[in-house]
Amino acid sequence: MGRITLDKVTKRFGDVEVIPPLDLTIDDGEFTVFVGPSGCGKSTLLRLIAGLEDVSSGQIRIDREDATNVPPAKRGLAMVFQSYALYPHMSVRKNIAFPLRMAKMDQAEINKRVEGAAAVLNLTDYLDRRPGQLSGGQRQRVAIGRAIVREPAAFLFDEPLSNLDAALRVGMRLEISELHKRLETTMIYVTHDQVEAMTMADKIVVLRKGNIEQVGSPLELYQTPRNTFVAGFIGSPKMNLIEGPEAAKYDAHTIGIRPEHIKASAEAGAWEGRVGVSEHLGSDTFLHIHDTGLGEAITVRMNGEVDFKYGDRIFLTPRADVIHRFDDQGLRIA
């Protein structure tokens, strides 16, 4: 069981308030991702849940029990750190067994669990190596192994993939998702990468300056961002945000239109512009259109190959039914 509730939690470092009063509930078995730009307080929030930092006020409940003043070891949570934080002087086996040893579990049970975890994570052949002799991906798996043997109420991941190269990152992303499906344990995952958030999460929590900007499923966030910050942060390439007279036509301060919701044509359309750089990804092509008179360059996503060249004249038409409208506070207009 792992339902985690944060009730008016705040955190101050000296005079600096990094987390203003914050409420959040994470349901049992949910894969929740905290996402936001660096310095948004997402790691601090995770460390508060872990018990590695004290809350300045408010309450943290784990399974309805007040855990606010419970030391990290007693909260029944396991954490995977950004640097993996493996014990360099211990073998893989001893690393994975460490939490069990601390729990004074008997040796036979420890062996069983360590070998079970190693089998799941493809680490069986490496059990007697030191972390220093492993690759980045293997170290990552040892860190996960150390977390799962405890059968914790919830897993906490602090940017676990940021030290891996791009190819491995995709593989580990799948492995962690797979693990979640199999264990059905609550997971809280911190990242600054919105792609990780979108692909893994059941629920995304977007944070900015310690404030929760929006909570919801990946699709909710994508389809109905609550404000311009979420609109710009979620989705790649970014949503086009347009202000000024063009937005006024829609009775809004700002309008947002995703790159895939714009139709391009060589003959006619609502907006006229000039083609800048085009990024060819094979399946998609992203065009960057300049001189539309709409402010910044407009990004358009097109299927497959297109025959617009640098400098060509181009006409764009947004799909009216998927235009996002925001007021002068940046909030969504329903």
């Binding site: 018990g51 590695l52 930092e53 004290d54 030391p71």
Partner: peptide, 8 residues
Amino acid sequence: MATQHSRS
């Protein structure tokens, strides 16, 4: 960067 517990 630590808890009350570890500070004491």
